[in-house]
Design a protein around this nucleic acid. Sequence first.
RNA 1: GCCCGGGUGGCGAAACUGGUAGACGCAAGGGACUUAAAAUCCCUAGCCCGCAAGGGCGUGCAGGUUCGAUUCCUGCUCCGGGCACCA
Length: 880
Amino acid sequence: MDPQYQPDKIEREAQSHWQVTGAFRAVEDPSRPKYYCLSMFPYPSGKLHMGHVRNYTIGDVLTRYYRMRGRNVLQPMGWDAFGLPAENAAIANGQPPAQWTYENIAYMKRQLQSLGFALDWDRELATCDPNYYRWNQWLFLRMLEKGIVYKKTGVVNWDPVDQTVLANEQVIDGRGWRTGALIEKREIPMYYMRITAYAEELLAALDTLPGWPERVKLMQANWIGKSYGVNFAFPYELGGEKRAMRVFTTRADTVMGVTFCAVAAEHPLAEAAANRDAKVAAFVEECKRGSVMEADLATIEKQGVPTGIFVTHPLTSEQIEVWVGNYVLMGYGEGAVMGVPAHDERDFAFAKKYGLPITPVIDVGGKPFSTDAWQSWYADYGICVNSGKYDGLDYEAATDAIAADLRKLGLGDKQVQWRLRDWGISRQRYWGTPIPIVHCEACGDVPVPDDALPVVLPEDCVPDGSGNPLAKRADFVNAPCPRCGKPARRETDTMDTFVDSSWYYVRYCCADNPRSMVDERVAYWMAVDQYIGGIEHAILHLLYSRFWTKVMRDLGLMGMDEPFTNLLTQGMVLNEIFFRRAESGRITYYNPTEVELRTDEAGKRVGAVLKADGQPVDSDGIGTMSKSKNNGVDPQALIERYGADTARFFIIFASPPEDTLLWSDAGVEGASRFLRRLWGFACAQAQRIQLQHAQGTGSQFDWGNVAPAQREVRREVHLNLNKANYDLQRVQFNTVASATMKMLNALERLPATVEAGRGYAPSGTVYDRIVYEGMCILLRVLHPICPHITHVLWGELGFAGEIMNAPWPEVDELALEQDEIALVVQVNGKLRGEIRVPKDADRAAIERAALAHDTVRKHTEDKQVKKVVVVPGRLVNVVV
RNA sequence: GCCCGGGUGGCGAAACUGGUAGACGCAAGGGACUUAAAAUCCCUAGCCCGCAAGGGCGUGCAGGUUCGAUUCCUGCUCCGGGCACCA
């Protein structure tokens, strides 16, 4: 056995052993309980970053742990290979996205393999492979047939200089990232998936997911946003024509306080007003500038103009003026809102700004209302006042009465409203799944027949940032109409990449099937037992995946209702973001490894400079490691210097999986030291352990009369095994790593000789037994985290079989027992001392011992003891 | 702006269901070994007062509940994630 721990050597050997034996190939076996462990597949951005290492190490720990627990495990891997960065790379270096993507996949695959993950590479898939995305197209057509896919217009960011649609990320302060041009909103036709048809089920089924974090379920529930309210109309006349402006409100009890209404710039009323009033027209134009992002819309200053058009209040017949407001969204609800400034903060600010009347109609516990400044209680529920026949009613009664009256008038009724909107999947981009539609002048939008699938994306395009590259490809665009055969044009939009990731976990089960999207193997593996990925996917990706699962179920393709039984949302790996802004406004990001921090004499940070030119760079704070912010850290250097086991141990040890982790490699040294120490200890004990094998390990040993100093070490080992079991079950792995360190610390402290003559078992024999048992436990507990070193040591020390298939160790409950326990003594909650009592001491004896303690006596002697609280096994609190 | 999290020594963190705050590590200081360095091993360590015994303070801030609060409640503050075309 090599006295030196050489990670590069042993890791290479272990990995090639696993490869040769096909150790991680998953085979369906109905006789064994399966465990499908899935980590979110990576976007092939070029190199792995620490977030990937963290994500996949967590998944690997679970996979290897459950394998040792006897489950038939599947842990696959693939590539989320379509997307914007490939096109950006093409713009930057002229390389076709396909080539760039495949090169990145090859490099990152080698990186993943070097980390020793127990992945079944036979099931590898890439979403940019026609054999994968043809099923996106196939299912799209099924959804089209069912009416789940439909076409309508949607709003996009339009860069007027590049003549192209920009992603939200490419709009910076309302300007195009490359051109600096002011961005405009533009309406274009798009395909939508009717996720709102599943809103009710998506919301209700959250209750069937006990294995999901509460916070994720809460976020999804809020996102779906079911609200109960009243939808009603304000009638009006325009150009002699009778019409109605519909609004939705969750506060029908405040309808009597309406003093104005506001509509979105795209609302028909706004358009009508713009036609006859230049001021309105100018404002409507202004509203069209800027991005479509909700965060931007929510933070802009609320502005509006009066349209000069009045609508009739349905209950009071009062004339109410309609305004155009830049904060009203056409895409949400009716594109019009009622204004009740006395009880809605946004309306209040708007009314103050434009001098509109503010009429309180709700009394909240008699508190005095003033129009001077908004108070948060103005929005509270209360009793109607100033509301005519509704005076004195509470929220529910008033809502019922008002809804009933509106119903009688035929102007409105109660309605359930959803915040969730249908999912627009059309993207005006090249590197994505082609939408399988042909546009024919005679036949309209014609679906591509199934036998003509897949519609293959040409892989030699090099986008240049202007327009849509597919539209420029005559060989792609020109196609005969599938229906009439006349020349027609292919759809050039591609699908949102969230489509790709909405069902890839299904395809892993049958990735080699060229004839159908799913097969019977799906029923064996699905649902995913444990899904692991970043918290940033808490809403969109996870909601879309749940939606697709339900659609596939309703199409008869799968049986399950929900795709992911247990969800672990990994915290983000963060790093500082450094950048410079050029005069043109263009921003360049610099990797933290290229930046040097400047500090003053006291060690306080005073600035940061680029190592290359010594000139200052700005900090944009701390953020998730990403390609776009160039703040990722390549784990390669770490792996090469210390080995995969150290990298894995360190990232697991650094913090609990769900916590955010601010990257720093301080502490890697400690992980490496631990593994070297473990190797050294194993070397030193190898002969002794071999001897135990030779003597037969199956024989029972009587641990009853072992000297306390040795018994304490064995207790420590089993205590930490117990702790590791608990922490594995609650997915807190950092303390599992700690437990393995504590076990080694204990074994190293194990005394070889103890005081003789007390009838204890011979200390030399006990020493050998504890070391043998201790290493047998320690290696197995450590194996999921550090598979290579434990694989090798398991073999070197002569333990049977392969450690990856060894059964998980059992806690010996007797080893945990102690004769005497220590109790803490407090006086008035303050720690004053410690007493030792027999483990079965009764309450009275504990109280006596506590009151007899010197320090306790000092703090109680001139006072009256009111009460003594005894917490068994923990503490005694004397209250005076 | 809205929704969801988080804040504990110089640093990463631990603390089972309200019961000894700081386990396990990193960095640091002191020592041993060595011609020297690396590696390794031993010791110290939340902050303040004290030679010590001991005492006071301490889990972002301000309150509350409790014999007892990092843990429960209220308000605030800072940081992170999401906000529908980054993935």
